[in-house]
Design a protein around this nucleic acid. Structure first.
Lengths: 242, 242
DNA sequence: CCAAAAGTGTTGAATTTACACCCATGA
DNA sequence: TCATGGGTGTAAATTCAACACTTTTGG
């Protein structure tokens, strides 16, 4: 926290952006019907200069003078995908001396969740592409390891907080919510027990509406309970939002 | 991760250092007997220039060109207290635009645990002093909030991993380990249930020795089981140690 | 023998898990 | 009416919490 000579080390922000995509989707409502199991996907950008020119990398860049760290993360998410995150959290600061071959870079990495429905509209192009999270090519710098860590955080956080709904729209069925959990955790969950757990957590509120058009008994739609803190980050929530 | 103009934002590393001190200690063995309950303490340094000259602050400073982030944290721990940490983990990167009144500073903050016995030898002086963690004066910058967050992390981490022994020596009794938990969590724990929990976790190994000299039945001494990962940081452990 | 901490046993409550079964709808 | 997912009930298994009780030492 001293002032003094800096310059030697440069600072950047990167973001790991997760969305859930149906394996063979077609734009209709996300989960309730079939259409193949969902899978985690994330957007990467192609490096257009050295080092690692041509390799895929996490979206990121330097932070502006008057911009918060989370703001920078949200901005480069917006710039590369055109989307707004429904969840954004700092992951870790990576600062190994040799993580970039040309200069000393410390990257403060965020991870974000975006809604499935919106992710389908996301920009894609020559230099931006979505990849399956569990089947990535070799990435630039230490980005493979960073994604692996982000995945681990997402999975563990899912178990003790209620962030899964960040993938969904305003209203959703319990089956849709359960499918998100199943996709992220990679294992099937008992529908009956899942229902009881999430209901007892008070994180969601039943609405009067039901989702019609399915082939069977129409399931009830639920809404998030915004009066409940969805993630437990302790005092950090207060600190960051002040 | 682009190269480019930086300079606008400077980077620093700070460390929240926790030790456990007997309320009225006298250098004899830490816990088993009485001597008052233990309390969390941490060292602060006095600012000797603006901004916030005269206020107490977390130890910290800029990172050297060829130094890892954790290395920088360990170094300034060593420089201010003369101690080596038994546990060191990244806490968070704080980067609010206005957290320093004079320039834009992003601080990557670590938190550390040091052994009780060693902490008693720690350097203290005009500009370095130890404070009770739950009764701090007004600190420089956003450091009060940072300490609050570090305390929360320590407490929650204690419940799902086995870091408490980082406060203790090579061997210790279950009562000593339990007293660490009680001091950090701030509530009494059932000795019988605590014993079973920690024994079933396989985190410690019974030795043949017992601690004699107490006034009652001599308790068995235990040792850490180094073959068990003490903290679950997921893939991060591998990433950082590579 | 007495006091007090070390260590063991037991019981009831709470939570988790597995799975049987009824309900409601479209076709 | 049938197939199927929505939704409820329930009993066994596991974990958790409280506390009685036995053991071992110093004095």
């Amino acid at each position: 926290m001293d002032d003094s000579r800096q310059a030697a080390v440069s600072l950047a922000v990167s973001t790991v952006i997760f969305a859930l995509a149906q394996s063979g989707d077609s734009g209709d409502r996300g989960g309730s019907g079939d259409g193949g199991p969902s899978a985690l996907r994330l957007p990467l950008v192609r490096r257009i200069r050295e080092p690692h020119e041509g390799l895929w990398a996490l979206p990121g860049g330097p932070i502006a003078q008057a911009e918060s760290l989370a703001g920078a993360a949200g901005r480069n998410l917006q710039e590369t995908t055109g989307l707004n995150p429904t969840y954004l959290e700092q992951l870790y600061a990576f600062g190994d001396v040799d993580r970039s071959p040309v200069e000393r870079v410390v990257s403060i990495v965020y991870w974000a969740l975006v809604r499935t429905e919106e992710a389908e509209l996301a920009t894609e192009g020559e230099n931006v592409r979505w990849f399956a999270a569990d089947d990535l090519p070799q990435l630039a710098f230490d980005h493979n390891a960073i994604v692996e860590y982000a995945l681990w955080r997402l999975r563990t956080k899912l178990e003790y907080s209620r962030i899964a709904h960040a993938f969904l729209g305003d209203t959703f069925t319990l089956a849709e919510l359960r499918e998100v959990h199943e996709a992220v955790l990679g294992r099937p969950l008992d529908p009956a027990n899942f229902r009881r757990q999430v209901e007892s957590s008070k994180a969601i509120i039943a609405t009067d509406e039901r989702l019609t058009g399915g082939r069977h008994r129409p399931p009830r739609l639920y809404r998030y309970n915004t009066s409940v803190e969805l993630t437990d980050n302790g005092p950090l929530a207060r600190i960051e939002r002040n």
